[in-house]
Design a protein around this nucleic acid. Sequence first.
DNA 1: GAATTTAGTTAGCATAGCTAACTAAATTTC
DNA 2: GAAATTTAGTTAGCTATGCTAACTAAATTC
Lengths: 136, 136
Amino acid sequence: MDLADQLHSAAIHLLRRLRVRDRESGIGPAQLSALSVLVFGGPRSLGELADAEQVRPPTMSRIVAGLHRARLIRRRGTEDGRRILLTATPRGIKLMWAGRHRRVELLARVLGSLPADEKTKLREAAGLLRQLIRNI
Amino acid sequence: MDLADQLHSAAIHLLRRLRVRDRESGIGPAQLSALSVLVFGGPRSLGELADAEQVRPPTMSRIVAGLHRARLIRRRGTEDGRRILLTATPRGIKLMWAGRHRRVELLARVLGSLPADEKTKLREAAGLLRQLIRNI
DNA sequence: GAATTTAGTTAGCATAGCTAACTAAATTTC
DNA sequence: GAAATTTAGTTAGCTATGCTAACTAAATTC
């Protein structure tokens, strides 16, 4: 329980620091996060994107509308006439990479000053966490 | 850069899973987070709370109004007539602990099934991260 | 005592979360 | 094969949360 709390707290404070840079992207956090799923996870339908973001369909519908208005994604029909396939545009991909870089470079800078063995520990921990999260 | 990315991604996905339980608390995420600062960090002024939450004063003013309406915090005047001291009420403290427990128990459950050496690694990593975050 | 600074609030805008109620396409049922 | 049901997404309307600009009031500086 105590360990869970420490990890939870670390995650909160880490993201709180990093999200400051996100405002420079010009789009909101929900749009940014949804776009990252499309850019790094590939095209998918609105419902799948809503599931990935743990958000209800009407919410995702509006997020997608914003991304589309900003020409960051494309909407295509599929064989199933009800579903739409969402794909990041080159513009969307570019914005995402720039944002990711900006966001992570703050962290990368302080990580760079750590001794190698501590970096190794963090790398192992990140791997453990990734597996763990799948089991939650 | 790659390590930074892995940690960033782990933090995002961890919180995305855990925040589901927060909705059960009945108050929004910003109120919950601000309340946690008061409960676990002690009383402070509105401006200090805004700094802690990395939010502008008008935003915190409204978050505080919500917490006050729900009787989760108390507002008191200070010697400096402009500042107000915010303190969590017993009701606020209770809600916070219940929420924290709910939030973290999911994580604690999967952590419990890990071998001891992996838990040790995660504990070390959490400590490293805490120091790291202070330097960002 | 007047001017400035500081703490917080109010007003007004955009984004983001929800549920309820809708449209339209696909599937199931009879 | 027509009717009923299910599924995918949208629209409408609510609350919460972020911002800036403009305000009030208290404290400090000059």
